[in-house]
Write a protein that binds this DNA or RNA. Structure first.
Length: 933
RNA sequence: GCUGGGAUAGCCAAGUAUGGUCAACGGCGGCAGACUCAAGAUCUGCUCUUGUAGAAGUCCCCAGGUUCAAAUCCUGGUCCCAGCACCA
């Protein structure tokens, strides 16, 4: 009967659900294992790429269950922030894909209306995620489901932040953030949920350098290269732009009107008057550090909206400045300050000696400010000088310093001496949804989580050394990521979903900050979902009692219940494994670990991380949620290909690399499953006969069981799959081919492979098991056997296979009709030599051809040398000596049948040992003589 | 730029830690054949070059080096990918 995956998979999903086998239970006789995946944010339906990570974790946890661990595998969604706003936006714009997919969930008019609320949409999507997980056969406990915008979760986060506050891990300080003057704070990210333009913009950090006039004004020149201050010859402004006087504290700054908005938002500047460019040009200014008094000129390359509209001129290293100086025929000589080593001949001599701008403009033949190559040359000089440039002349105490090392020191010094400040600006225009240009605003009282804390960093880094982390290299990487971490803003203002900040309800807690301790909350969430606890009773006392073990004197009357939940927390915590995609390496995982260190003691810190990669579209294109339409919809895939085949596909390359969607592969896996189905359910006649090959097969089974288990436990899914779904059945077929037919052993072999199949393809494994058992395979134990090393029995079969392929190749080469094949087994004296070689290796010596050549008498010297070296190779790998005659005789039927020839086996001790090829025989490699007609 | 990863036959992709059993697992695609009403099916063989004796030659991004021996180790170079702070 053919394999009907749709019916069978749905049947088993229902059975697992009805029997509630994913439900956690405390059993002190069993070891526990607590695993989660980093919960997804509900911005649209899950797509088949995302299911990869979740099902890989499920495979791992299913094996853990079979290894008799008590497994807890809850789930949730992270709705904080703006993800579901994006969904609503797409829905409202009539996105056909979304409307089509909504049909899968039987959405009626009323629900459709409600979906315009982002909070409702988030909950709706969360429910759809549960369906997707189950449709892929995951044994996930949905009773513990948590969504981060629920009342219960809010209570939990409030507790977390009050706890942080009390411990001094929250700090307030100024912060620069993207801000729409009309709507408030916005997020600048490529998905552009808040924006109509500029999602890829980067925040540039300019240094403002204060040039003071004699009459008390400051011209703050904005630059990306503050280290070139030693080469400044003059300032530039723009003749036809409006300039204003801005009051900043007690200072009076002169800036371009077009830049004023930035200064208002970042420095609280007050515009008090305007000033003509002619007035500005009549002034002279003093340069910080050098004390040089310089003039101010105008040039039309100055952009009044960029920086401050005041530019410092460094003709030695800034091509624009040099060309502008020439343009105006000013009597100014560039001041050499930077030397670059090792690039004398590269880039057309730009870095030959000092004065890169002068060399560059000359060799590139640039004469006009309108030349577009100026931009390119500027970038080149910046890049090379930053990494290889040395301040070598006219730079005072900074002479002989590498620019990359000294730049930050110069900036710090400028700020410290009140000769400068920082100015932030986007590198491209960013426009809000509302149409207003987004600017960067200084937020004076931003709340941060103190991840910069050295003690927390050190404790976390120490703990990471003890963790199980896959892939291996991430363990090292994490150490440096933690070092690099700075305090992280944890609150924001604006229209977002999330928890109000308990210390100041005008703020909302930011999404990264509220997703660090949730594995603890799942344990409580289960009680909320089952109505055993009232959300309003979840106060700080409750969480302190459950999570921190403090005595409970709170409002819940049933004190035993609180005690019970606390006990469960202590049973399941610490978390054993957190599985998440590669994008979590630098954000989620580090703060997840550090937050645990801040809140819990060392015995509650997570034990494991698993970082996985995703499925991409063909050509390595990342699957975007909006564009998921090219791929099968997540609930269609199990029907088209079967969930089991999808799981095999996910497992088919290392988790630590992206996997390209390939429908052909999935179909092939599905066909393979059908084949296995036929193979196992086929009712061949077996008997009680015993054969030599029986013990080989039994040993193979036991070894493969062990190896597959080892692979799975190390997340080597591909390797495990090769053994379970391919090698195992190859061995099975070889067993049949060699005449094996023992019914007891065959039943054992079939039942064993069903168990091995369960973690990766649970549905078909469960169904096959149910054909001759009354139990649920998902709750059975993984087979466990004494490990058996490879020995002569296995080698004997390899020997047969090699002889088979050797004969087959020879027959092919000769290409004539074959009469018969003679196999000559090597003479006994050659075995003697072979054993000597093995002994030499055992004694740590390498046998040499010359040691043996004189004792070879049956073939010419050159051939003898070759044979000896072949024997040495066998001996090097300590290939065991087997009874070749016995094994060949036992396999003769098979060889004759498969090769369709008559075979004669001749022992070396046999008196009839003749024939042209007999001398070629060496131990473990008989001579083959093919007689043609 | 910073940090991490990578480059293997027409394509995808193992192998690299512990150098030799590597002309290099597996899959796709291609070719030939079997089953013969058909099949998005399955099975068998072939798929770098040469070859009527189990072999030889040339190969694992490029250039050097170490070694009896290198896809694997070392040095230098080129190219590609991912992540990068208020964004989940």
């Amino acid at each position: 009967m053919p394999y009907d995956w749709i019916e069978i998979e749905q049947k088993w999903q229902k059975i697992w659900c009805d029997m509630d086998i994913a439900a956690p239970s405390i059993d002190s006789n069993k070891k526990k294992y607590y695993g989660i995946f980093a919960y997804p944010s509900p911005s649209s339906f899950l797509h088949i790429g995302q299911l990869r990570g979740y099902t890989l974790l499920d495979m791992f946890l299913r094996l853990k269950r079979m290894q008799n661990y008590n497994v807890y595998f809850p789930c949730g969604t992270h709705a904080t922030g703006i993800p579901s706003y994006g969904f609503v936006k797409k829905l409202e714009s009539g996105n056909s894909e979304i409307l089509k997919n909504l049909n899968y969930y039987g959405v009626n008019e009323e629900t459709l209306k409600k979906l315009h609320s982002p909070a409702y949409a988030a909950e709706f999507l969360g429910e759809s995620y549960k369906k997707s997980w189950k449709a892929f056969g995951m044994l996930v406990d949905t009773d513990s489901y948590a969504i981060t915008i629920s009342r219960g979760y809010n209570k939990f986060i409030e507790w977390q932040f009050r706890t942080l506050y009390k411990s001094g891990y929250l700090v307030q300080k100024p912060h620069f953030a993207p801000y729409c003057p009309n709507c408030g704070p916005v997020a600048v990210d490529p998905s552009e949920s808040d924006l109509s333009r500029g999602g890829n913009a980067e925040m540039m950090e300019y240094t403002l350098i204060f040039f003071r006039t004699e009459d008390g004004f400051i011209l703050p020149a904005a630059t990306l290269r503050p280290e070139t201050i030693f080469g400044v010859t003059n300032l530039w402004i723009r003749e036809d732009a409006k300039y204003v006087i801005a009051e900043v504290g007690s200072m009076n700054w002169i800036i371009a009107m077009d830049s004023a908005e930035k200064f208002i938002n970042q420095f609280d500047a007050k515009i008090v008057a305007s000033i003509s460019s002619r007035d500005i040009q009549s002034k002279k200014v003093k340069t910080p550090f050098t004390g040089n008094v310089i003039a101010i000129y105008e040039s039309n390359f100055v952009e009044p909206g960029v920086g401050s509209g005041v530019v410092m001129s460094v003709p030695s290293d800034a091509p624009y400045d040099l060309v502008a100086v020439k343009d105006k025929s000013l009597d100014i000589d560039p001041i050499p300050i930077i030397r670059v080593e090792g690039y004398d001949k590269a880039y057309m001599g730009v870095f030959n000696g000092d004065l890169a701008a002068v060399n560059g403009v000359r060799s590139w033949n640039i004469e006009s400010l309108a030349d577009i190559r100026l931009e390119e040359l500027t970038k080149l000089i910046y890049k090379i000088e930053y990494h290889n440039g040395i301040l070598y002349k006219n730079c005072g105490e900074y002479n002989d310093c590498r620019i990359s090392e000294v730049k930050d020191k110069i900036i710090d010094r400028l700020i410290k001496d009140r000769n400068g400040d920082k100015l932030y600006e986007f590198d491209q225009q960013v426009v809000c949804r509302c149409g207003t240009t987004v600017i960067i605003k200084k937020i004076r009282d931003q709340w941060f989580i103190n991840y910069h804390n050295e003690r927390i960093k050190n404790l976390t880094k120490e703990h990471i050394k003890k963790m199980t982390i896959l892939p291996d290299e991430y363990k090292e990487e994490l150490q440096s990521i933690i070092d690099w971490y700075d305090d992280r803003a944890c609150t924001r203002k604006g229209n977002w979903l999330g928890t109000r900040f308990p210390m100041d309800s005008s703020w909302i807690i930011e999404p990264i900050a509220d997703s660090t301790l949730y594995p603890a909350f799942y344990i409580v969430s289960r009680y909320i979902n089952r109505g055993m606890i009232n959300v309003e009773d979840l106060d700080d006392e409750f969480f302190d009692a459950v999570f921190l073990g403090k005595a409970y004197k709170g409002r819940i009357n049933d004190k035993d219940l609180v005690k019970k939940i606390g006990k469960e927390f202590n049973y399941w915590y610490p978390l054993d494994l957190n599985a998440g995609g590669k994008e979590h390496k630098r954000v989620h995982f580090p703060v997840f670990l550090m937050m645990h260190t801040m809140v819990f003691d060392e015995h509650k810190l997570p034990d494991g991380l698993f970082v996985h990669w995703w499925v991409t579209e063909r050509g390595g294109v990342k699957i975007s949620k909006s564009k998921g339409g090219d791929l099968p919809f997540v609930l269609d895939a199990p029907k088209i290909y079967s969930a089991d085949a999808m799981r095999m596909f996910y497992a088919s390359v290392t988790p630590f690399s992206d996997l390209e969607w390939n429908e052909t592969d999935v179909i092939n896996f599905r066909n393979r499953l059908s084949q296995i189905w036929e193979f196992i359910t086929g009712n061949n006649q077996h008997d009680d006969s015993l054969h030599y090959i029986d013990q080989w097969f039994e040993r193979m089974i036991k070894r493969m069981v062990r190896i597959a288990e080892q692979h799975l436990i190390n997340m080597k899914f591909r390797e495990a799959m090769n053994i379970i779904y391919y090698n195992y059945f190859d061995a099975f077929e070889w067993y049949y081919a060699r005449g094996g037919n023992n019914s007891t052993l065959i039943k054992f072999a079939k039942d064993t492979v069903k168990k091995m199949m369960l973690p990766i393809t649970p549905h078909i494994a469960e169904e096959l098991w149910s054909l001759n058992h009354d139990t649920i395979l998902s709750t059975e134990s993984y087979p466990s056997f004494e490990y058996c090393e490879e020995n002569e029995i296995e080698y004997g079969e390899l020997y047969i296979k090699r002889i088979y392929s050797d004969i087959a190749e020879l027959i092919k080469l000769i290409g004539k009709k074959i009469e018969k094949v003679n196999l000559y087994i090597a003479d006994e004296w050659k075995y003697g030599l072979y054993r000597e070689m093995v002994d030499m290796f055992v004694a740590g010596r390498t046998p040499k051809i010359s040691d043996f050549i004189s004792r070879f008498t049956d073939v010419p010297g050159k051939k003898a040398a070759k044979q000896i070296s072949a024997m040495i190779e066998f001996a090097r790998h300590s290939t065991p000596v087997i009874d070749e005659y016995f094994i060949l005789t036992d396999a003769m039927n098979l060889l004759e049948r498969k090769l369709d020839v008559k075979i004669t086996i001749i022992k070396g001790s046999d008196g009839n040992y003749t024939g042209s090829k007999k001398g070629e025989a060496i131990p473990l490699r008989p001579a083959i003589h093919i007689q043609t007609e």
